[in-house]
Simulated scan of single mutants.
Amino acid sequence: MANKAAPDSTRRSERSRRAIFDAALALVGEVGYEKLTIEGIASRAGVGKQTIYRWWPSKAAVLLDAFTVDADEDYAAGLPDTGDLAADLKFVLRATADEFNDPAFQAPYRALAVAGANDEEVSRTFVARLLEPGIRVYTERLRAAQEAGEVAEGIDVRIAAEMVLSPFSQRWLMRTGELTYDFVDTLVDQVLRGLRPRG
């Protein structure tokens, strides 16, 4: 009698993880973070809640992994470099505005902002996985522009990157205005006005 191959536990675990991630992201959009529960995630994913607790200590940890699982791939290519810094920043920030205006993106991101405000470990992990890589790719693009003479010597490009990203994030997080293409273009133009070489 032919031997049957043993089930691949690695593939089964990966399927379960993906099902849990999909469930967490869907549910936080449907019921909000306050009503999101491990039990609800487990039920939607078709796994036992003990499976979730074996891998994550809390719903915030599940949501954080679900939201950042592909973050490395998103940042791997860096920002475009066409030789026109303003055009490149506007192109990327317009696409980012579209993403931030998508309800499927908003729900988990806002939930993690709330969770991070109350949980230092969640906050540190969120910054390390998502915010820092984002700042890094902007910093690298601005450094290339500095080397090309588009940004003045002596400018701290890390701070310059934060000058671009912080008003964008603040407007979205605090709902002080809409993330429109006009806002993005004006933001880039005004920041770069202060970064350009003089004379």
Score class of each variant (00 low, 15 high):
Ile52Glu: 05
Glu147Gly: 00
Asn3Phe: 14
Leu142Met: 09
Arg175Trp: 06
Gly46Trp: 01
Ala113Phe: 08
Gly46Val: 12
Arg18Asp: 15
Asp65Tyr: 08
Asp119Asn: 12
Val127Asp: 04
Leu93Tyr: 10
Ala95Phe: 03
Asp189Ser: 15
Arg198Leu: 07
Ser9Tyr: 10
Val69Ala: 12
Met163Trp: 06
Leu173Ala: 02
Glu120Met: 00
Glu73Arg: 09
Glu140Trp: 02
Glu99Val: 14
Met163Ala: 02
Gly134Ile: 05
Ala160Asp: 09
Val151Ile: 03
Gly116Asp: 08
Gly116Ile: 05
Ile38Phe: 02
Leu130Asn: 06
Leu89Ile: 13
Ser16Asp: 14
Gln170Asn: 15
Gly177Val: 14
Tyr138Ser: 03
Gly46Gln: 12
Leu195Asn: 01
Ile155Trp: 08
Gln146Leu: 07
Asp156Thr: 07
Leu63Lys: 03
Lys59Ser: 08
Pro7Lys: 10
Asp65Gln: 12
Asp119Thr: 05
Pro7Glu: 04
Val137Gln: 02
Arg44Ala: 10
Asp88Trp: 15
Asp74Lys: 04
Trp55Val: 02
Leu192Glu: 00
Gly199Leu: 06
Ala86Tyr: 14
Phe21His: 04
Ala2Glu: 11
Ala95Asn: 08
Ala144Thr: 01
Tyr75His: 09
Tyr181Pro: 00
Ser13Arg: 06
Thr10Gln: 09
Val69Met: 10
Thr10Ile: 01
Asn3Val: 14
Gly149Thr: 05
Val28Glu: 05
Val122Met: 11
Ile52Met: 10
Met163Thr: 01
Tyr109Val: 01
Phe105Trp: 02
Gly40His: 07
Phe67Pro: 04
Val188Gln: 03
Ala160Ser: 08
Val92Leu: 02
Arg158Gly: 13
Glu132Gly: 04
Glu34Asn: 14
Tyr109Ile: 10
Gly83Arg: 09
Pro108Trp: 04
Asp98Ala: 05
Pro167Trp: 04
Asp102Trp: 09
Ile41Met: 00
Ala160Trp: 06
Thr125Phe: 08
Gly83Asn: 07
Asn3Pro: 11
Glu99Leu: 15
Gln50Arg: 14
Met174Thr: 11
Gly83Val: 08
Ile38Leu: 13
Pro57Asn: 10
Ala24Met: 08
Ala145Gly: 05
Asp8Leu: 03
Arg198Ser: 09
Thr51Pro: 02
Asp98Cys: 02
Asp98Asn: 06
Glu162Gln: 14
Ile159Leu: 12
Arg11Asn: 13
Glu153Asp: 12
Thr96Pro: 00
Val188Tyr: 09
Leu179Ala: 07
Ser9Val: 03
Ala76Trp: 07
Ser166Phe: 10
Leu131Cys: 11
Thr51Tyr: 09
Ala104Gly: 06
Arg44Val: 10
Ala19Leu: 03
Ala71His: 00
Asp81Pro: 02
Ala107Leu: 04
Ala77Tyr: 14
Glu162His: 12
Asp98Leu: 08
Thr186Asp: 11
Gly154Cys: 07
Val28Tyr: 11
Arg18Asn: 15
Lys35Ala: 13
Val47Phe: 01
Arg94Asn: 12
Leu179Asn: 03
Arg143Glu: 14
Tyr33Gln: 09
Ala152Asn: 14
Gly40Tyr: 03
Leu63Cys: 01
Trp172Arg: 05
Ala23Leu: 08
Asn3Arg: 15
Gln50Phe: 01
Phe168Ala: 03
Gly116Lys: 09
Glu14Asp: 10
